[in-house]
Design a protein around this nucleic acid. Structure first.
Ligand SMILES: NC(=O)c1ccc[n+]([C@@H]2O[C@H](COP(=O)([O-])OP(=O)(O)OC[C@H]3O[C@@H](n4cnc5c(N)ncnc54)[C@H](O)[C@@H]3O)[C@@H](O)[C@H]2O)c1
Ligand SMILES: NC(=O)c1ccc[n+]([C@@H]2O[C@H](COP(=O)([O-])OP(=O)(O)OC[C@H]3O[C@@H](n4cnc5c(N)ncnc54)[C@H](O)[C@@H]3O)[C@@H](O)[C@H]2O)c1
Lengths: 243, 243
DNA sequence: GTGACTTTGTGCATCGGTTCACAAAGGCGT
DNA sequence: ACGCCTTTGTGAACCGATGCACAAAGTCAC
């Protein structure tokens, strides 16, 4: 993999795009979707041009950060004016790989899997749910949101025939590693994991997780800190009064 | 708020814990839940002691990082041996504020809200769903997972009577800011947002978001990069052959 | 009791990301 | 046509997080 990548490097200089394109920082990539969403909002309201200040406010970041982020994908702004909404949205879409549709499969049709299957948010931006999978044979009779529920054995053909690229794991944590292994074996290299556990995957496979309970626990940490601070303040006041 | 906090500082020296406790880095806090989960796993398998190496592997980090993280909460390991599983789990729980149960309300009983209400993952670790809320009067007849669906007007009393501390937003993005404002007005200071939008809140209120489509888009970015690299490699090979 | 061995806790170097502040760039009004 | 004014793009300083490497600490075998 490493050598293959290096093979390509010499071509970089004659690639079409002018700016130093390799190596967009991870932190920047993580914010691009938010910028894109904000731009979509502006476009829907008929706004054709925004300044970095306005866009940053809509995305919840500082304008300097926004500008530095955008500078990594090229120079698409006009000094003294700002950015053309449609054009910038297109450039970000292209950078994120959303100009094509990515076929997605959801594995695990329980409570969460049902909600995900019914979710329209996939289709709106670059993703297409091509299959629903579950181990449970009882479910194979059903259709959910217009798609049949298939057995796990369908995976390899989904990759070869439908170009399946992204797998979403919505099974219990105990099954998640096994499901992950099956996805990887079938050739899926991008996985979104909703199960609360760490997945171990070979190099070249990306895993991201969406973890409700981690987020709640982080909130609890700060909430406790706020409570303690308030309590401490009360104590201090009480002490001051009693003195 | 700042001044209240400073009022408390002098007490720190006579607080029970020996180490410099203030200011655990955000990056560390974000990993504590993962460590806790790994420890729970060890405990379930009857393992009473782990080294930083073992625990780090289970949590998917490097051992040096784990040790530095743990050093921020105190010195709970034994050199030459490792960490006592139960004790460390308790210390992390206490640090995260999970030794008490936090009352949680879910707002928006659509597809996702239903799944969340039925989800057992809340109760297992420090959280208790005390209320389900929705604007839609049709839903107020129903019970979901043993809880009645209440109108938004119930919010203030939930905070005062039940100690509601954390709000989960599972409404469409268009309603999320309004729901957020109502939560804040009622006194909720910690919010978990599932809607794909940025929420603006006053200082002192924490918002975290769980964002499916952002994660998918980040995966797409890397997937595209992998595809391009593969394509580039093929081109390079073809070129080499033709020469 | 002692010494060898294991593993922690941490100082230090390094890295990546954020913030600041401003010179360069371009539109726009006159 | 020209100069003013706005806003971008970015160099440089700063800040927090990560990784390295080892001395200190404590266990355990004998
Ligand atoms: N329900 C929620 O709101 C929620 C929220 C956050 C996280 N999660 C996590 O998402 C996951 C799913 O939650 P859920 O509530 O939908 O669970 P669930 O028990 O309702 O559904 C799990 C589904 O996975 C299927 N399954 C189990 N093992 C499988 C395997 N090896 N291969 C294929 N399919 C398999 C089961 O047949 C079942 O249909 C869990 O890990 C949970 O912790 C759920
Ligand atoms: N369904 C999924 O799998 C999924 C996944 C990721 C993110 N999301 C996001 O979660 C949110 C909910 O998704 P969903 O599929 O459950 O939507 P949904 O339309 O099924 O449900 C939304 C619910 O919110 C209620 N609601 C609307 N406005 C309200 C208000 N002002 N106050 C109180 N309640 C209000 C509605 O009555 C409805 O019951 C959306 O923002 C969606 O983008 C959903």
């Amino acid at each position: 993999m490493r050598t293959l990548h290096e093979l390509k490097e010499p071509e970089k200089t004659l690639s079409a795009d002018p700016s130093a394109r390799r190596g967009i920082p991870d932190a920047t990539v993580a914010r691009l979707p938010e910028y894109l969403r904000a731009l979509t909002g502006f476009a829907e309201r008929g706004i054709t041009s925004v300044s970095s200040e306005e866009l940053a406010a809509a995305a919840g970041v500082r304008s300097a950060k926004l500008r530095k982020d955008l500078s990594h994908l090229g120079s698409y702004g006009v000094r003294g004016v700002g950015y053309e909404v449609d054009h910038l949205a297109y450039q970000i879409s292209r950078e994120l790989g959303l100009t094509q549709d990515w076929p997605v499969a959801i594995v695990g049709m329980g409570n969460l899997g049902h909600a995900l299957a019914a979710y329209s948010g996939f289709a709106t931006r670059g993703f297409r749910v091509v299959a629903l999978l579950d181990q449970d044979t009882v479910l194979h009779e059903q259709e959910i949101a217009g798609l049949p529920v298939q057995p796990m054995e369908a995976l390899p053909s989904l990759v070869t025939d439908q170009g399946l690229a992204i797998g979403v794991i919505a099974t219990p944590a105990a099954s998640a590693q096994s499901v992950c292994d099956q996805l990887v074996a079938a050739g899926v290299r991008s996985i979104l994991n909703f199960a609360p556990c760490v997945l171990v995957v070979p190099e070249g496979v990306d895993v991201r997780k969406v973890d409700l309970s981690t987020e709640l626990q982080i909130l609890a940490f700060h909430e406790q800190r706020k409570s303690l601070a308030a309590q401490g303040a009360l104590d201090a006041v009480a002490e001051a009064v009693s003195r």
